[in-house]
Simulated scan of single mutants.
Amino acid sequence: MSATYRILDEPRPGALGHLVVNPVFPLLSLMMAGAWLGVPWFVFNSFAMGSTTRRKETVLAVLVVPGTLLLFMVLGTLLKMEVLTKSSMPYALVGVIVWKLAVGYALYNLQQRSFALHEYYGGVVRNGALVLVASIFLGSQILMALTGGTPLLMVLLG
């Protein structure tokens, strides 16, 4: 009879465990390229490293889209009610950016604990700088191709 010892918060890397990156790279890609790259990268990284909080991370990542839509609809309603003017709308849209960055920072904080354990116990860690730099230079072109220039989709994925 053998007993197994298991740490509850120990990450369990999956088959893609060799593709794990430091969570700072998805956070920076969210800031520099947009949600189209940063949010899916957070989810992928979470499953690749076997993060113990991957369900929370996935739910939080999925909430980016409805939260952005809700903020966009509220701002549109405020514009129709003439609480906001067309000249104040760009300033109000900063709230949408803040929402996405706040979710990204929350994802980073959730993932950082599992990543630290993954790294400490000898897990493979890749450098995400190449993807980040490529997204900085090609991100707007990729976003335009993904959305076809539709303003609502640009706000959602940007």
Rank of each mutant, 00 (worst) to 15 (best):
L132F: 05
V65G: 00
L19P: 00
N109R: 14
T85F: 13
K100R: 13
A102T: 14
V24E: 01
L70W: 09
L143P: 11
P40T: 03
V64L: 12
W36T: 07
M31G: 14
G67Q: 07
W41M: 03
A92I: 07
K100D: 06
V103D: 03
G139C: 08
L84M: 08
V94I: 15
V125W: 01
R55Q: 11
V39L: 11
N22D: 12
V133D: 03
S46V: 08
W36L: 09
L28T: 04
L71S: 08
T58F: 14
S87G: 08
L79M: 12
V94L: 14
E82C: 01
S88A: 10
S29F: 01
V21Y: 01
M73Y: 10
F115K: 08
P90I: 02
L27G: 09
L146W: 03
V43N: 02
L30Y: 01
V64H: 08
Y108L: 10
L75P: 07
M31K: 03
A106N: 05
W41R: 03
P40Y: 00
V98F: 09
T52G: 15
S140I: 11
L84D: 06
S46E: 03
E119I: 01
Y121S: 09
G139A: 07
G104N: 05
L84T: 07
L132Y: 04
P66H: 04
L117E: 07
V96R: 05
M73G: 06
S88E: 06
L117M: 13
P90E: 04
F47A: 09
T58M: 14
F42L: 04
L107G: 01
S114H: 08
L70S: 14
S140M: 11
S88K: 03
Y108W: 12
A134T: 11
V125K: 06
V96H: 05
T58C: 12
Y91A: 13
T77L: 14
W99L: 15
L78Y: 00
A92R: 00
G123R: 11
I136M: 09
F44A: 09
S87L: 13
G50M: 07
V94N: 06
L79P: 11
G76E: 10
V124P: 06
V96C: 10
H18R: 11
L60G: 12
I97T: 15
F72P: 00
Q111E: 13
R113N: 11
M49F: 04
H118I: 00
S88T: 14
K80M: 09
V43Q: 02
A48P: 04
A134F: 04
A129S: 13
V64N: 04
G128S: 05
K86V: 14
Y91T: 07
